[in-house]
Computed example of a mutant assay.
Amino acid sequence: MAREARLIGPEEEKRFDAFVAGHPKGHFLQSYGWGEVKASTGWQPLRLVLEEEGRIIAAASLLKRRLPYINKAILYAPRGPVVDFHDPDLFSEILAAISRVARQEGAILLKIDPDIPESDRAVKELLQEKGFRLAARGTGFDGVQPRHVFRLDITPPLEELLANMHSKTRYNIRLAEKKGVVIKEDCTLEDLPVFYEILKETTLRDHFLVRSYNYFETMWREMVERGYAKLFLALYQGEAIAGTLAFIMGDKAWYLYGASSNRHRNVMPNYLLQWTMIRWAKEQGCTMYDFRGVPGDLDENNPLYGLYRFKKGFNGVFTEFVGEYDLVYSPFFYWLWQTAFPLYSHGFRRLLFWRKKARAAEE
């Protein structure tokens, strides 16, 4: 049967997302809307489909970015492509289609970080056979997407999910309720600045960068309004003290952004927020809830161990993915990108962080 690969436009957005949502390896990072979010940060989204008799059988949302100073680009398929990796012929076809796009766009590499467990030797062998090389090897948050996550099967009844949690986690959920923490689920765009202020407070406390408010406004427009994300706020005595952004695609949900104030942390709002999001995901028909990144280094002296312990308390399964793989189209420019560009990027990010911290101290 004849198969055709082609790039699509916005008129096929719903059809594209329907395929991604219904595929076992579909991910919100491969949605049409997420490409629009990344377009606000300098990436150009390209949506590719592979069809058979008019039916999509594989797809990829590709993010293209021009490299500084040279007329070249990189392609990145976050948690993609959306394809059955255990069908080598189908994977070869979508990969060949991506490579044609890469040549047209002057790309020096294709980066992927598929939703495939580290234990899947067959897929790792397939990637190596196709010329991919492992890119990120760290145990922390070295890659673009986290390599280690906690995932919770939420198909059991709520009572069973709660009973399976660590006793301290259950205690903290009930403590938050007893203390009067209320979760606001009907958030609107007017609540977004409140969440963002708490997020800025969190980043200063925990020493990481935060994107601009405009980025979150774009995320609201492209993901929340499409029904692929939802904002939750924890209120205590009428004050918002914590918040989260959850994402959904098909039968899967992800916890992506979390923020907590320095005030009233003793009433444990983050535990009740997670429990509320799990219940929400289950109500939406989801079967899996992803807590997102945790460190791969499980030493208790690791500064990120507290994050691991918090997420582990909900009884999710510690999951390690195969990691980032690069398919190199231009070895020389790839070497240049691997050596010179990281130095430029690291210096710029550090400068940006300290400028933001200085401005916050002046306010």
Score class of each variant (00 low, 15 high):
R3V: 12
P10C: 01
P10R: 09
E11S: 14
E12I: 02
E12M: 11
R15M: 04
R15D: 06
F16Q: 01
F19D: 03
A21F: 03
H23I: 00
H23C: 05
H27M: 00
F28D: 00
Q30T: 01
Q30E: 13
S31Y: 04
G33I: 07
W34C: 05
G35R: 02
K38C: 07
L46M: 03
E53C: 09
R55L: 07
R55M: 12
A60V: 06
A60Y: 09
A60R: 05
S61M: 15
L63R: 09
K64R: 15
R66N: 07
A73L: 01
A77G: 12
A77E: 04
V82G: 01
D89V: 12
E93M: 15
L95E: 11
A96I: 01
A102S: 14
I108Q: 02
L109V: 07
L110A: 10
I112L: 05
D113G: 12
S119G: 15
S119M: 00
D120P: 10
L127T: 02
K130D: 02
K130R: 15
R133A: 01
L134V: 00
A135H: 12
A135P: 00
G138A: 06
T139S: 09
G140H: 11
G143M: 02
V144Y: 05
Q145L: 09
P146H: 10
V149Y: 02
R151N: 03
D153G: 06
D153N: 10
P157D: 12
P157K: 14
N164I: 01
S167Y: 11
T169F: 03
T169S: 06
T169E: 01
R170M: 06
I173D: 08
A176M: 01
A176F: 00
E177Q: 15
E177I: 00
E177V: 00
V182D: 00
K184I: 02
L189I: 13
L189S: 03
D191M: 01
E197N: 08
I198S: 02
K200L: 14
T203E: 02
L204S: 13
R205S: 11
D206N: 11
L209P: 13
L209Q: 13
V210M: 08
R221E: 13
R221Y: 06
L233I: 09
L233E: 08
Y236S: 04
G238F: 07
E239H: 11
F247P: 00
K252F: 07
L256H: 11
G258S: 01
N262Q: 12
R265V: 06
Q274A: 03
I278L: 03
R279I: 03
W280D: 12
K282L: 05
E283L: 04
E283D: 13
D290G: 03
V294E: 01
G296A: 07
L298G: 05
D299Q: 06
N301L: 13
N302K: 04
P303D: 06
Y305P: 05
R309V: 02
E324V: 09
Y325S: 04
L327S: 10
L336M: 14
W337C: 08
Q338L: 14
T339K: 15
A340T: 10
Y344V: 12
S345K: 15
R350C: 00
L352S: 08
F353I: 00
E362C: 08
E363C: 09
